[in-house]
Design a protein around this nucleic acid. Structure first.
Lengths: 384, 384
DNA sequence: GGAACTTGATTCGATGTTCGAACAAAGTAG
DNA sequence: CTACTTTGTTCGAACATCGAATCAAGTTCC
């Protein structure tokens, strides 16, 4: 991740949970410190209830190492990925493992007060049902389907009544632990970065569902920009959109051709009764000709816009996520447009594909944010 | 800058040179360490010849502080900003001040061996003429007009014979000190970031001269991407370019309408005898109608491409640099296109203007890179 | 099977860094 | 002149890290 302090609790936990270091000796080697020092550190973590010993490992020609494992029965971070009508919640152990996840109904349009109150009881329900009730909550991470700047929602298009609302402050009070809030595309990007497990990667993750958003992660750090609205690609003008009016007041935006909402509108105008982006995916999977060609057109539009971004950012990978990413012709069209329009040096090693972390990528990212915050602030506190 | 280790020599030097800390006591407060610790650190720097005491400051109700100042007569870093036909060199003190600069002729097309040999003698000439001969060289920073990846030139369009050449290794051998090499737009961006002096800013700097390049700096860190070619905007397709063929083999690239080279070509096609971008700037300043309208058109094309990048990156400022940035209608057209096409939340606090650091922005950035490298690796070495 | 070697983990004194209290130096305020 | 401030240094205490010594528990090979 290259984010945590070298030798910090978070760092050691990561090394232990990824298997990069299984024993005290391993840690000493990997961290470049004396064995005695590594031993002391491990003892601290054991005392704090974050790590436990779990039998012995195979000998490498000498005494057998005493294997270490992050405890999964101690404190945990709560992660929530809010969509427009649902929320996925999960619990993440200090080992960065998502141990439980669940989905609940939650209409973001009900406004911040109602939604966050409801979120609090969903969290209570979740922790009790998943057998987490007796365990210590160390932090909360939340993803929202709109721009987030310094813990506040700012200028959202699909979240009426949320503008300027300080979600972080409100939830910190409700939960009594540190809360971190970010945009949904950002947490998906962070989750995907973590799932891939490759350090020093620059990842461009595009979330294409009802709307289109994207997140840029470089070496484990999310690029947020001046107002936390970095990653917007939906209101870039694209030639294929002609002069179609967009919800933003401008015309010709990418969103009017390449988003799930736009596809639904177009299909309805054609007289087809399609109710959801999920249904579009099914029709495309059945090779419905008019849907397929429409989806291709949409993907091409997205690829056109992304080509500019990809040339500029020069990422290691472009990963699509969301309902539209499950539609093969859509992905293929994006890929084609990128290969056609980007510089060879940019595309030669570029991976273009679908995010691997699945539906829980967002929860994963939210959990990581929460954990990062929690482990950075409180270090050696009372037992969980 | 948020780049150097807290409490490191580089950090203290910065605090002292910016005036954030004038005395040992100040340093202790700013760094959050004990006064005794700050005193020790300062003594080290004095012993290393990097800092000197310079009289006493005004009392604040007690004993007068002994003012500190970075020494400008000790070691220095050499910075070079190579263009296609010239090189600007400068010397930077550990206080991050550029103390001398000079320009030399140097044709990049002569190939790496000839150019770098020549650069070595230019450096010797420069140091002797500027009275730097007796002082210790602590590092070298170089900017090149092409993509640089890990110290090597990779796939340059205006640097025949340079592809794959390891400039860093070659110069490190020639100078016998650490050498850092980067793309010219990147060092300009870094120099401008430093000149503005605002921490945690995200800056997009566009260098528009014969060619077009850009650099992104966020919190003092240059974004380099997977192959060090991040920042390319010149080969993005732009509607205004139609099907004009580009040197990259593709058609409709921004470079074919918005670069100085393109403007020259177009004017020559019109039968106007214009020999340089400098002359274009003069004609535009004289309000030559056909030149002005052409330049406007070019600026609009650049703005169109930048709008996508700016929406995505959400920077604090977009700064134009290079010969074309001196042409007001060009800048105005870029500005207009950005305001028209970017999201309101992105442009509301966005500064769009011309880089303030002037012709030495590149040298400044190269010097900073060199210094950062030198002060990070060698800490308390022998006196200069 | 046993001696020699390896690897893992702990103990403990040596080293070095940082802190903070005490103090000296040099002022200001009244 | 006295009381209080601020700056800077000195010096012992506290703390972290290291490395050597030691113990523990293997493997290898004759």
């Amino acid at each position: 991740m290259t984010v945590e302090e070298p030798g910090s609790a978070a760092h050691i936990l990561r090394l232990v949970s990824t298997g990069e270091a299984m024993s005290r000796s391993d840690l000493a080697r990997v961290l470049g410190v004396a064995r005695s020092t590594a031993s002391l550190r491990v003892q601290e973590l054991i005392d704090a209830g974050l790590v436990s010993e779990t039998g012995e490992g195979p000998s490498r020609g000498g005494r057998r190492p005493r294997l270490l494992r992050p405890r999964t029965d101690g404190g945990f971070a709560l992660a929530a990925d809010l969509g427009t009508r649902h929320v996925r919640v999960g619990a993440m152990t200090p080992a960065r493992e998502l141990v439980h996840t669940a989905a609940y109904e939650l209409d973001i349009a009900a406004g911040p007060d109602a939604v966050l109150t409801e979120l609090r009881s969903i969290a209570a329900d979740f922790t009790s049902h998943e057998g987490l009730a007796g365990r210590r909550l160390i932090g909360v991470g939340v993803g929202l389907p709109g721009p987030v700047d310094a813990g506040r929602v700012s200028g959202p298009s699909r979240m009426p009544g949320w503008h300027g609302y300080s979600v972080e402050a409100r939830l910190a009070e409700a939960f009594g632990v540190p809360v971190t809030v970010d945009n949904d595309a950002n947490i998906v990007a962070l989750g995907e970065y973590h799932a891939r497990g490759r350090e020093h990667e620059t990842l461009l993750v595009v979330k294409a569902g009802t709307g289109i958003g994207s997140g840029l992660v470089s070496s484990g750090v999310v690029h947020r920009g001046a107002h936390g609205v970095a990653g917007d690609v939906s209101h870039v003008r694209v030639s294929a959109a002609g002069e179609l009016p967009c919800s933003c007041g401008n015309t010709g935006c990418l969103e009017t051709v390449a988003s799930g909402a736009a596809l639904l509108d177009t299909l309805r105008d054609k007289g087809m009764d399609v109710e959801s982006t999920k249904r579009i995916a099914e029709l495309a999977a059945d090779a419905d000709p008019s849907v397929t060609s429409l989806v291709r057109f949409a993907g091409r539009g997205l690829g056109e816009v992304l080509s500019t971004v990809v040339n500029f950012v020069n990422p290691h990978a472009v990963l699509l996520y969301g309902r539209l990413a499950t539609i093969e012709p859509y992905v293929a069209a994006v890929r084609g447009a990128l290969y056609e329009r980007c510089l060879p040096i940019v595309t030669q090693d570029l991976e273009i594909g679908v995010a691997a972390a699945g539906v829980d990528a967002g929860v994963l990212g939210a959990g990581l944010l929460a954990l990062r915050h929690a482990l950075a602030t409180t270090d050696r506190k009372d037992r969980p």
